[in-house]
């Protein structure tokens, strides 16, 4: 589900359209924190796509609070 990029960041393999995968990953993550309302983009609220600690990249996002 994750890979490490050239900057050493943990990047989600599912890209920006894997809603189920991002929700599954957030469900298991003890560090999940819902971002402010302006930045909520996934219908499943508990999703890495809605997490305060994700940083969007061109193709996906990097997790800045890995387990």
């Amino acid at each position: 589900m994750w890979k490490v990029n050239e900057r050493g960041e943990k990047v989600f393999r599912g890209g920006k359209e894997d809603g189920a995968g991002a929700a599954q990953a957030a469900d298991k993550c003890p560090n999940f924190k819902l971002d402010v309302e302006d930045e909520i983009v996934a219908d499943e609220l508990r999703s890495c796509y809605n997490c305060r600690y994700r940083r969007w990249t061109a193709e996906s996002f990097a997790c800045y609070k890995p387990e």
């Binding site: 971002d35 302006d38 930045e39 600690y53 994700r54 940083r55 969007w56 990249t57 061109a58 800045y64």
Partner: peptide
């Protein structure tokens, strides 16, 4: 309004690069 700007490795944004 929230305006999405470019997400790019050369831009040092925090998490989403948007302006208000």
């Amino acid at each position: 309004t929230r305006h999405q700007l470019l997400v790019h490795p050369d831009i040092p944004y925090t998490s989403h690069n948007s302006s208000m």
